[in-house]
């Protein structure tokens, strides 16, 4: 589904070169739910941006369903992104001038195509994420948990195969976080959508099939509950 091969990324700042990703190898199967944990500044968000084609690597490859992202033009990348990839951000990134349903429908008509099923799709997803009655409201008037639901609905409206979530519960209390995670987990199971979620929260990471521990631009280890000594490793990594 996704394979990443020797991915490097650096940023130039003045005459300084900041090495952020230092040769990441990773492969993610269809329907897998992955959590990425690691210290602040280790490059997790940068990795997610590259996985979603929002930015380009300095070297190395990101392949989505066998297609090499780096071989595509900006325009072709955008098409893959709109079709196969959904994003959820910690700070929701909703447009305050649009209503809830307009925000959710945004990915559907971003490319100018009109589809008479769009309306139905929007109604269905609003039901699934529990936002009925709030369709015409401005997102500014919603609670944090509700805004995150809007952003999930927007991330999933085009039924992408891959959902990339950067700290989706970072701004929520435990109860709202659990609701959002239950929702993500439901979509993951029902639609076999792969989810890659960056999180600092071990409770959120518990929802994933696999936890990737990321440090200093590299994957240090992948752990699952089946691995011997995983808890010991996690405890010392998260210390």
């Amino acid at each position: 589904m996704i394979s990443v091969n020797q991915l490097f990324k650096h940023f130039e700042q003045g005459n300084q070169k900041i090495e952020v990703l230092k040769g990441v190898d990773l492969s993610i199967k269809e329907g897998e739910f992955i959590a990425i944990m690691g210290p602040s500044g280790s490059g997790k968000s940068t990795l997610l941006q590259l996985l979603g084609g929002l930015d380009t690597p300095s070297s190395g490859q990101v392949k989505i369903q066998g297609k090499d992202f780096s071989g595509l033009t900006e325009k072709q990348r955008t098409i893959v992104r709109r079709k196969d990839i959904g994003f959820i951000f910690q700070n929701y990134q909703l447009l305050p001038t649009l209503t809830v349903e307009e925000n959710i429908g945004f990915p559907l008509h971003a490319d100018g195509r009109k589809d008479k099923n769009n309306k139905e799709k929007i109604i269905n997803i609003i039901k699934e994420v529990g936002l009925e009655g709030l369709e015409k409201k401005s997102p500014n008037l919603l609670s944090g948990g509700q805004q995150q639901r809007v952003s999930i609905a927007r991330g999933l409206i085009h039924e992408p195969k891959i959902l990339l979530a950067d700290e989706p519960t970072g701004n929520l209390d435990r109860k709202r976080a659990e609701e959002i995670l239950d929702l993500l987990s439901k979509f993951n199971k029902q639609r076999k959508q792969s989810i890659i979620m960056v999180t600092h929260d071990i409770f959120a990471a518990g929802y994933a099939d696999k936890i990737i521990l990321f440090k200093d631009g590299l994957i240090e280890k992948e752990v699952t509950r089946e691995d011997h000594g995983y808890a010991e490793y996690l405890a010392s990594f998260l210390a």
């Binding site: 518990g206 929802y207 010991e232 996690l234 405890a235």
Partner: peptide, 19 residues
């Protein structure tokens, strides 16, 4: 340290169960 390890284990087991 060992208590933290145990708690992490319990969090993952309970969450998986809940899921």
């Amino acid at each position: 340290n060992s208590q933290k390890e145990l708690i992490i284990k319990q969090i993952l087991i309970l969450t998986d169960f809940k899921k």
